[in-house]
Design a protein around this nucleic acid. Structure first.
Lengths: 194, 194
DNA sequence: GTCTATATAATGATAGAC
DNA sequence: GTCTATCATTATATAGAC
């Protein structure tokens, strides 16, 4: 495990650079200089740049899974858990303002590149989608749980795109309020139904 | 005007390629082959690639302005006009599914590249934002016309990102329905108020 | 495992003939 | 205005010494 530290360093820094600059724009030279290794050393750990991307996506998938499990434990009700998701826009708004959503922007880029890893990158969306769906199912939305999950995902993506375009953090706050109210409203309707 | 045809050809094809593949990924070779000119000829019309990007953005700005003026004339009420905007998601859903929103994806890419033209690219958002704001003002939303404009812009962007990620056109239809209902509801509330 | 040196291909860009 | 070279630079990737 000791000698895997450089590999982890590469993944960690590539993850950041891919987010901040985009995958295409980020060169091995960029990463090598940030990790403080030579470009040659690189290829001992990853055969190609695509290979590195795969590792970064896997890293992100793991981190996301951990985060979702954490939310699952800490939120006492589905509504509370959904709000953990919504509030991520607030928690990360500084980075979202600067670089957009890491999931959405990578997806957009890889889709345009027709990149072989685009499917894997979109699995990041699946993690959120499936997790949200579970919450809506618990709230009693048997019929449209997936639709509601997609809706809330789309709303979040839209907020990220515009916060990034306008470099505007306060816009995030306002839209998050709207989303929270939307969830509360859903919850109330459900309670009335039941 | 006759000899400007090649220049226009370049802009027209670059516009498409920047949308489909992204700005960074699209090379002069790509464009030259599509326009059927040599790479050398290129530099007679544009000094640099950045220069070409500026021309493409200007081209898009002009087209967008024309489209908005057209909607302004053809829509008889603000609600009808806002729906022209929303329905663009339906009209362009095939391309949105494949490449996302041309405005949003260019904005995201240029923001990550810290490109000198990012401000100009974001003016595309401004055109829609200002136009939508006018409609909401006419609907009587003096206080929050801009907020409503941003909200509807964000919703549209979110739909585009997810339709692209999931290569799903039907999702667009569903979200467009929700948006239309949202506008109708606003309109009714306004009428009641007045 | 890490380095230096290098191969190779593609990119944006230029020079100059026609 | 368009073409055919060609250049300089950068990118991914490899070879081989340590």
């Amino acid at each position: 495990m000791k000698n895997s530290s450089t590999k982890e360093d590469i993944i960690f820094n590539a993850d950041q650079l891919f987010y901040e600059q985009g995958y295409e724009k980020t060169s091995f030279a960029d990463i090598a200089s940030k990790v403080n290794i030579s470009k040659g050393n690189f290829y001992h750990h990853f055969k190609t740049k695509d290979d590195l991307l795969k590792a970064v996506i896997e890293y992100r998938l793991n981190n996301t899974e951990k985060m979702l499990m954490d939310w699952q434990i800490k939120g006492k009700t589905p509504t509370e858990r959904i709000q953990s998701f919504i509030k991520i826009l607030i928690r990360n708004r500084k980075k979202i303002k600067l670089y957009g959503c890491p999931v959405g922007t990578l997806s957009s880029e890889l889709n345009k590149l027709e990149h072989s890893s685009k499917k894997e990158a979109n699995r990041l969306f699946d993690l959120f989608r499936d997790w949200l769906k579970v919450q809506f199912l618990e709230l009693g939305h048997q019929e449209d749980a997936d639709r509601l999950a997609m809706h809330i995902l789309a709303r979040s993506q839209g907020v990220a795109v515009l916060a990034n375009a306008y470099q505007d953090e306060t816009f995030v706050d306002y839209e998050v309020d709207l989303l929270v109210k939307w969830v509360d409203n859903l919850n109330n309707l459900t309670k009335v139904k039941v």
